[in-house]
Design a protein around this nucleic acid. Sequence first.
DNA 1: TATTCCGATAGTGAC
DNA 2: GTCACTATCGGAATGAG
Lengths: 245, 245
Amino acid sequence: MSSLTILRSYAQKSNPDSLPSSVLLSHSDTSLTIFDAYPKSIFHFLILPRVKAPWTANELTGLSSVFKCDKARAKELLLSLKDEADSARKTIQDEMQKRYGFKWDIWIGFHAIPSMEHLHLHVISNDLCSPRMKLKKHYNSFHPKLGFFLHLNDVLSWFDAEPSYFETAIQLKKAKYEPLLKEPLSCWRCGRDIANMPTLKSHLQVEWDDEARKEKARVERKRKREEDANRIDTQNTLIGPPTKK
Amino acid sequence: MSSLTILRSYAQKSNPDSLPSSVLLSHSDTSLTIFDAYPKSIFHFLILPRVKAPWTANELTGLSSVFKCDKARAKELLLSLKDEADSARKTIQDEMQKRYGFKWDIWIGFHAIPSMEHLHLHVISNDLCSPRMKLKKHYNSFHPKLGFFLHLNDVLSWFDAEPSYFETAIQLKKAKYEPLLKEPLSCWRCGRDIANMPTLKSHLQVEWDDEARKEKARVERKRKREEDANRIDTQNTLIGPPTKK
DNA sequence: TATTCCGATAGTGAC
DNA sequence: GTCACTATCGGAATGAG
């Protein structure tokens, strides 16, 4: 199977459960949620629309081809992907809590110019810490403010925009988006320019470690507060009436 | 010692014999012949003018600064370098015969834009086979027909050219010569374009092996002819008068 | 913007 | 056009049977 069309081959399966569990996380009637084979963050899933009536494989090649179909149908499709993405987000959040003791943000969106020939919606945790995050284009393709990563909610807002804006937006012109991948590296959190990928990766790790530390402290303070409140409640229950706040 | 000025430091020695034998091959009153520290061929020497009255270190920075001095003095300097280069050439030819049993061509010339700050004349065998021959710019800087390598005899001919030609030539404009180093690779022997350095290096090795084979065969034929002639002479001496040719 | 392999290209730092 | 080091950039192939 060529790497260019592997997602399509998944999306064409009439029985998604035949996919190995290392590939498939879950599926619905209209979509699959798979593990990105080269995760660019600790958590990274792809939501694929299934090739199923009324959709053909060609119509599902990418965002542009989807938009070229009936507008209402396109919106319906994206909303169903959104449902699946929200579900994947919850799965990720549970895992975050279980494995790391805290939760951090998750981004949901498309690449303006994908390489693989089947629409895929990224659901990715915002750490961007992964051994597979190797190249400038990898990073820039997920930078949340650069423009190449199209947040799903932004894409959905196109449906409510002026028709002329909609028509321009859905063209996803290469000339507009391709150069973004070559932009200088900058930390999406602190905005600082960073000279190269090794330095950026260290920086992202520090930023995430920092967030982890702060979040865990916050969780711990909350736990303490609740414990205190509980002890006071218990004391109050045992020795007197509740104190006024 | 910075690599930019190391040649100058050699050229300034009042006693060149204090240089290690791994650096110095020989010297005259006006010049040094040193081993190129990064030989781009099997044989590769540099001839340096010594910093010695009437020459100052600044005047000897490069070809341009030399030409800016008195024209007659400049010519005299180049002719003295030529003498040393011819001497180095003979040394190389002896070594070729001793080590390889045949001789091949030697080029004598300057780089139009040198990186090191002291005039140095290259004396280099035309094999261009060396582990130090690594980059396109290395090769192109010695390509005998590309223009970046200025054969000493060509430079000397500038003195006899129209004054306007002379004045233009001695400027050695970067804009003219720099782009030559990025020209596509082509074999200086057979003219074929060659895609990359690894391929070129293999090709140069084959070309040189080929020349070696042919030259050795030629040498052997000559030896045989002389042996035959000698045997016939000897026979003639022993058994009769020389035969007419 | 799938990865991987190979090589060319570009910037730096050397002292 | 000094080198050596690091990283980036640029093309081509990639599968399957």
